[in-house]
Write a protein that binds this DNA or RNA. Structure first.
Lengths: 206, 206
DNA sequence: GAGATAGTCGACACAGTGTCGATTTTAATG
DNA sequence: CATTAAAATCGACACTGTGTCGACTATCTC
């Protein structure tokens, strides 16, 4: 049922009952995550909310972990979609940093809950960890490019642009993660703080 | 048995059988954490290793989570012990940063496993999260002091020394966390990278 | 040596997971 | 539209891990 040969799929791909169910389950899961921690959720909770029996759920996902992976994969796809749409930055480091920060802020505002859950489960669910690291890597590359354009030495090693970008990326991750658990305003502040550190690291006087 | 009125305890506090048992359990837990993830551990594993029945374990800790809290609390105490011992920095920002970084590196080298486990469990076990945040706050205060001495404006708000120190602190946490899962050398590199970002954020040309 | 207190453990009840096989529903085909 | 293979559903079961209870033993204290 999943994956009707996605590449080159027929047009108007008749969403079979199974497809709908699958979506319903993920929807149920997402809804419930707003109410309970993932750990506290049971397969029963999810099945009940999605309107089928627990056993039937296993027809679609072989565990709640796998369901979460599927749900998170969808979110990541959405994130990367937007990244691609907004690609091709017009250089100027200071502006590029401000833009990147604004976009990051948007992502967290829209998908904060999902990202928080995924990050929490990253150590326990390798697939989620991988997905998240992969997403981070795209971000690291983007920051690296900005740093280089701002004049930071691009060599390998602990003080090269790549390593610095890595540290900055994970600074943003943690800072936003914590702020998003506090309030939307905290998120704004987090963005501003991170922007300043970026600028200074890039060697641009703020 | 736990907590025989710690403040003002009798001298040479006879380590009753219970005290020994408690220590044995924590030791067993720590040993096992080197082999298996905390989630994968069962109360049985721990009890077996500690040489008593599962039911007896519950006499000392009401869950494996609580045992982990106790174990982590011990580690945190050790960390703060050393922090206090090395307190009273002799100013000079550049040197202070290098020293702080070196100390952080030592902590991770010695207690990396425990810190990683605690961080992983922070979202799930509030007591651990609180303990970790508390530890971080001590660190944030130290960085704030260094930044101020280096000339960073100390006002509140997203670009004040406090906020910047917070971002830097969590940058270090994440960067070391990830590096410590890779190799000791990665940890060295992490330290160097973080040092550079600190210096630039403090406005000191490296 | 008579309590009391600390420690131990087998046995139980319970909650959640994942699977199996029997059954019904759906959709494609002549 | 009748047939039939595949898709989907679910009750029931076996299993694993948790936490508790009550009866028992060891250890201390006077």
């Amino acid at each position: 049922m999943p994956d009707p040969v996605k590449a080159g799929r027929r047009r108007s791909a008749a969403p079979s009952k199974g497809d709908r169910r699958e979506a319903e389950i993920l929807e149920a899961l997402e809804d419930l995550l707003a109410l309970k921690s993932f750990d506290a959720l049971t397969t029963n909770d999810i099945a009940e909310r999605a309107g089928l029996s627990r056993a039937s759920m296993y027809f679609y996902f072989s565990s709640k972990q796998e369901a979460l992976v599927a749900l998170f994969a969808k979110t990541v796809e959405a994130l990367q979609e937007k990244s691609r749409a907004a690609a091709g930055d017009p250089a100027e480091p200071r502006e590029a940093i401000a833009t990147a920060m604004r976009r990051t802020l948007d992502r967290w505002r829209e998908h904060g809950l999902m990202m928080r859950v995924a990050i929490d489960q990253s150590p326990a669910i390798p697939e989620i960890g991988a997905l998240w690291t992969e997403t981070a890597e795209i971000f690291v590359d983007a920051i690296t490019a900005i740093l280089v354009r701002a004049g930071v030495a691009s060599h390998e090693g602990p003080d090269g642009a790549g390593a610095l970008a890595g540290a900055l990326c994970w600074m943003v991750e943690r800072t936003f993660y914590r702020a998003s658990a506090v309030s939307p305003e905290a998120l704004d502040q987090a963005a501003e703080t991170c922007r300043v550190v970026w600028l200074r690291t890039a060697g641009i006087e703020s």
